[in-house]
């Protein structure tokens, strides 16, 4: 699949934003005043910024508002709605903490729950696609949630709890890669099932339908950087999980630690998310002999 930068940034940063907001909603940490102001600025900034960046990959942006209408059937629609509900639920909670020195505990807990549901709906946009075997697994939502909670925990300064989530994240990520590799690019589908010609025998593409590019090839039969996949997996795992966990365990906690910790984690997260798209294969590639 084509790793569009807008979608990579959207899923990565909205995940971190909602993760941070969830921690704040739980009252971990319970902050007020200026500290709260900057924390919420960061949380809302990443969540809203991610959502806005997702609009950049739309072909017909003027209809984006209609995406809130199909919650009955569409995960993408549900995601948009949940994002707005979460941001609205946490708004009075944040307002109370920043300006009134008050913590509206139940509202915060509800907002935290909604934040996680939002991340879940994001992950389901990909998980639901039978056409992309690597995504079509329960591990996808688990991964998205762990990235959100783990990364959000780093932002929230809950480093020891975050470290625990990051360790689980590392394990699940490795499992997801192994499972994806075992499935093969196109899972149970082959050119023989795609064309029904398997009843005759082994089938191959003799002539493609067109000599040039098309939308399908650019979007779904995209192959790039697979030769560096192993290196990138190592980068993702070391930066997102290994180094942050080691730093948390060995170095004294404090604001000085937070910046390199978060920078490393984001680097690893972006590598992992890039691979999430770049390594995923769509079954339509079969019709093109790929």
């Amino acid at each position: 699949m084509h790793p569009a930068p807008s979608v990579i940034f959207f899923t990565a940063f909205s995940g971190l934003g909602f993760g941070l907001l969830a921690w704040l909603g739980l009252g971990l940490p319970t902050v007020t005043g200026w500290t709260a102001f900057f924390m919420y600025l960061l949380g809302y900034g990443m969540a809203v910024g991610g959502l806005v960046s997702s609009v950049f990959h739309l072909g017909n942006k003027k209809n984006a508002v209609k995406a809130f209408s199909q919650w009955r059937s569409s995960w993408l629609s549900r995601e948009g709605i949940m994002a707005v509900i979460t941001l609205l639920t946490l708004a009075p909670y944040a307002f109370g903490q920043v300006f009134l020195d008050t913590t509206l505990r139940p509202l915060g807990l509800l907002g935290a729950l909604f934040a996680m549901v939002t991340v879940f709906t994001t992950s389901m946009i990909y998980t639901q696609l039978k056409t992309v075997p690597r995504w079509n697994t329960p591990l996808t939502p688990i991964l998205f949630l762990l990235f959100s909670i783990g990364g959000g925990g780093l932002f929230a300064g809950q480093v020891h709890a975050a470290a625990a989530f990051l360790v689980v994240l590392g394990v699940v990520q490795v499992l997801a890669w192994m499972q994806g590799d075992a499935k093969g690019a196109t899972g149970d589908s082959t050119l023989e099932t795609a064309t029904g010609l398997g009843r005759i025998g082994k089938t191959r593409l003799l002539e493609p339908p067109h000599s040039g590019q098309n939308y399908l090839l650019k979007e779904m039969a995209y192959t790039v950087g697979r030769k560096h996949a192993v290196k990138l997996r190592a980068v993702a795992l070391i930066c997102a999980v290994l180094l942050p966990v080691i730093m948390i365990l060995l170095l004294p906690n404090g604001h000085a630690l937070a910046v390199p910790l978060i920078a490393l984690h984001i680097l690893g997260l972006l590598a992992a998310r890039w691979l999430f798209f770049a390594e995923a294969a769509h079954v339509v590639r079969l019709y093109y002999g790929k």
């Binding site: 017909n60 984006a64 779904m220």
Partner: peptide, 14 residues
């Protein structure tokens, strides 16, 4: 249509 392309992703047949 807002041109998000998700339907094209969902279609196995291109």
């Amino acid at each position: 249509c807002m041109g998000c392309g998700l339907c094209a992703w969902a279609c196995p047949y291109g």
